[in-house]
Each structure stands twice: as structure tokens, then as C-alpha cells.
């Protein structure tokens, strides 16, 4: 994935604005637009195939989990039954749970929640994948995030792909030694997975120790970092940053204004006939 020439602060502000916007919006149409726009951002930054697969996995799991849980546990009324998973008359489970049903309103609510979640997740991935860890570190420090925390976050991001590939190697090596993870005995499978965690953890603890020693040997200390640390890089806000932040602020302030107008109308506090088109737009689209 290529780095996008935007200031990391712009990207973080972008995430904050979109994060607030998706909370304000509650129409599936506008939320879908936000989600599609975030996906468009990912696409224009030319992602790697592995990153696309990872994002699809996260988005898929998030969507499924939210829709499924909301559709089943939806408690508001009215609610429309789509189908029943466990009938109340089913022995034990049915009697204990009172039946497990799938509701249409819950499904819709879950879809809206998943769009909010997936939009912020996608923009989060966009920021991490398109920003040099070092720029991100600098940006976080300037946002007054404690240096140690910022350093830990950016270093962890740097090593995540490596940890993933090591985990695959461990699994393959165990299989090469005749170990079968999937067997009928679940205890065997669980103990195999736990044993496989040992080399991954050990290796990472060892790496973290070595990295910690290397970092300390190069004058790293949390106290000094906040007191007098300098930086050879200088991040500057460019024209494109200013334009994007301004556009986003105008857009989000417009949404807030429109929502306030609709709130006043809906609660009988203020009504103007010339704003009827606005009320319709807010109700249908936002």
C-alpha cells in the first residue's frame, strides 16, 4: 500500500470527524455512503491483497456478529418475527431461554451499527496502512499522547505482520512433527493450540526484550522523551490537509445544523414551511 501524502493529524482528525458523523447519522443510506466512501479511500491507496483479505475478514466478522446479536436480542417494540431459531417448546433450551427468535427490526438495527463500526474500522486501517510508523509516532506525541504509549503502539503495529507469519510457521512446524490440530477430542485440539502459543509468546517476549535493550542502549527513556526529545523529521500541514479538514468540518457542521433543525421541528419547537424540503431530506437520508 502506498503512503498518502497527508499529515497524520489530518488523518486522525478525519477519523474523529467521521467517527462523530456516523454516530449522528442513523439512516442506512447515509451510513452506507460513509462506509462506501471509506472503502473508496482504501482502494485509492492501492492496498495489498493480504490487506484486502484482512479487512474483508474483519468487516465480515463485525457485520455478522452485530447483525446476528442485535436480531436475536432485540428488545424494543414493535418487532417483527422473521423466523424462530429455538422454539419455546424445545426441551431445556427453549424452556430456559423462552425461545430464540430473529427479528426484522433487530436485523436493521444491527446493520446500522455494523455500518458505523465498519466505517471507523476501515478508516482506522487506512490511517495505519498509509502512514509511516515514524510519522504516526510523531503525530501521536504532538497530540500529547505519552511517548512510551505512542512508541509501544507504533512498534506493535510494525511487528504485527511478522508475528502473524511466525504463528503460521509454528503451526506448520508442529504439523511437520506429526501433530494434528483437528481431532475428535477437543481437549487434544485445545492443548495443541495452547502449546503452539508457547513458542509464539516466548519468541515475542525474547524479541521484545532484545528490542527493549536495543532501544535503551540508544538513550530511550520515557522521562527524557517528553522533556527534551527532538525530531529530525518535521511534519507540516499542507494545502491539501487544510482543504480536506475544512471540507469535512463544513460537511459535519451542516449535518449537525440539519439535525438540529429537524429536532426542533419534530419536537414542535420551530417550524418553517420553506424548510419542508430540508425536513424530508433529513428524515429520508440522514
Amino acid at each position: 500500500m502506498s503512503t498518502i501524502p497527508l499529515h497524520p493529524h489530518t488523518k486522525i482528525i478525519f477519523l474523529a470527524i467521521i467517527g462523530s458523523l456516523v454516530i449522528l447519522l442513523d439512516s442506512p443510506i447515509s451510513l452506507s455512503v460513509c462506509f462506501l466512501a471509506s472503502m473508496l479511500l482504501i482502494l485509492i491507496s492501492r492496498p495489498l491483497w493480504g490487506q484486502i483479505r484482512l479487512l474483508i475478514l474483519f468487516v465480515g466478522l463485525g457485520t455478522w456478529g452485530l447483525i446476528y446479536s442485535q436480531a436475536i436480542f432485540y428488545n424494543e417494540y414493535p418487532r417483527t418475527l422473521i423466523f424462530t431459531l429455538v422454539s419455546p417448546s424445545t426441551p431445556v433450551i427453549g424452556q430456559v431461554t423462552g425461545g430464540v427468535h430473529f427479528y426484522r427490526e433487530g436485523l436493521l438495527h444491527g446493520a446500522i451499527q455494523s455500518l458505523r463500526f465498519n466505517t471507523t474500522l476501515t478508516i482506522g486501517c487506512f490511517i495505519i496502512w498509509t502512514t509511516q510508523p515514524r510519522d504516526l509516532l510523531l503525530a501521536l506525541i504532538r497530540l500529547r499522547v505519552p511517548y512510551s504509549l505512542a512508541f509501544m503502539v507504533t512498534t506493535a503495529l510494525r511487528y504485527l505482520p511478522l508475528i502473524g507469519s511466525e504463528a503460521m510457521t509454528v503451526i506448520r512446524l508442529q504439523r511437520l512433527r506429526g501433530f494434528r490440530y483437528l481431532r475428535l477430542n477437543p481437549i487434544h485440539t485445545i492443548s495443541g493450540i495452547l502449546n503452539s502459543l508457547r513458542p509464539i509468546l516466548t519468541n515475542n517476549i525474547r524479541r521484545a526484550t532484545h528490542l527493549g535493550e536495543a532501544v535503551e542502549s540508544r538513550a530511550f527513556s520515557p522521562e527524557a522523551a517528553t522533556a527534551y526529545r527532538t525530531s529530525v523529521r518535521d511534519l507540516k500541514i499542507q494545502m491539501q490537509d487544510a482543504i480536506l479538514i475544512s471540507a469535512l468540518l463544513v460537511c459535519s457542521l451542516s449535518v449537525v445544523g440539519l439535525k438540529i433543525l429537524y429536532f426542533l421541528y419534530a419536537n414542535g419547537l420551530y417550524y418553517a414551511s420553506w424548510l419542508r424540503g430540508v425536513y424530508t431530506f433529513v428524515r429520508e437520508v440522514l
Binding site: R218, A219, F220, A224, R229, T230, S231
Partner: peptide, 9 residues
């Protein structure tokens, strides 16, 4: 640069 930045150079 990392070590030098830590030293406030």
C-alpha cells in the same frame, strides 16, 4: 536519528 533524538540533539 533515533538515539540522537532521544538525547535532544
Amino acid at each position: 536519528a533515533f538515539g540522537l533524538e532521544n538525547l535532544g540533539v
